[in-house]
Design a protein around this nucleic acid. Structure first.
Lengths: 145, 145
DNA sequence: CTAAATATTTCAGGATGTCAAGTAACCGGG
DNA sequence: CCCGGTTACTTGACATCCTGAAATATTTAG
């Protein structure tokens, strides 16, 4: 065991990539929070609304996607519903289920939110199309997609 | 302005890269929270402790690095201090300032935390050295470093 | 020396999150 | 049909995170 720390201590290149990813994560998050804040939304509210802007979802599915307890989703949907951005609909097939759906206004806010993400444009704009394609492929492979 | 939506609606390639980055962010965060949870730490506690494992910092600096109000840092440091992971030291040069520093135990936990980050190893392990170098360069350019 | 500025804490209040318990509805076996 | 077990959601209690305003102690500028 001359170099037992190799398994835990990655090489400098990997470390650097890690650090850069950390930076990306931090910027992405900050950007997202700011965009949400411009609509007086919190991060979790914005994430939930974005999900619902794609398709209505039962509370349980929402909890799964947000990786939290269903009881938590209740409160977030409550607040969005009280602002008219989301509504609860009964599921005709199962009366236990409540399907959360974005209202027209909610979808408009979600659209604004997407467009407000500066991170989407600025940093990627500096890359050529070929570089972006290359980045896409590397990220894909990294994620095992 | 024949195509005014181009500024807001990026091309499909950029969209895809964005989506992939979102996925990276989500996984990174989930991984971090899980690693923190294994030490009964919350995300913010783990981030603060990681910062302090590099160097002691005054409360004010901590707030800046964490992008939150100083009054918030007070509570997080309180909880870490009550567990013996962090301690407050007086600043000899300015008696208003309290410098937060990781204890020996705190540094050990921070080390475990770093090593527990699966994300660090697994996905990057699938990339060759050249690919990682390429990824590093692209991320660098994207971040404008 | 005094007034303004700075570092930290405390307090009130909202939001997020977990867990346990409760209610309503589905579903399968008798 | 009905009864027991499961499932979906909500409620309540509680911890944490976070902000903004006010209080305290100390430094610094005039």
């Amino acid at each position: 065991m001359s170099t037992p720390s190799n398994a835990r201590r990655p090489d400098p290149l990997t470390r650097e990539v890690l650090e850069l990813i950390g930076e990306v994560v931090a910027r992405f998050y900050a950007d997202y929070e700011e965009a949400a804040g411009e609509h007086t939304l919190t991060g979790p509210q914005a994430r939930l609304l974005s999900l619902l802007s794609l398709e209505p979802l039962p509370m349980r599915k929402l909890a799964q996607k947000l990786k939290c307890e269903p009881s938590n989703v209740t409160g977030i949907v409550d607040r969005l519903e009280s602002r008219g951005l989301v509504e609860r609909r009964p599921d005709p097939a199962d009366r236990r289920v409540k399907v959360a759906a974005a209202t027209e206004q909610g979808r408009a806010v979600a659209r604004d939110l997407r467009e407000g993400l500066q991170f989407a444009r600025e940093p990627l704009a500096g890359l050529s199309e070929e570089e972006r394609r290359s980045l896409r492929d590397l990220l894909r492979r990294m994620l095992g997609t």
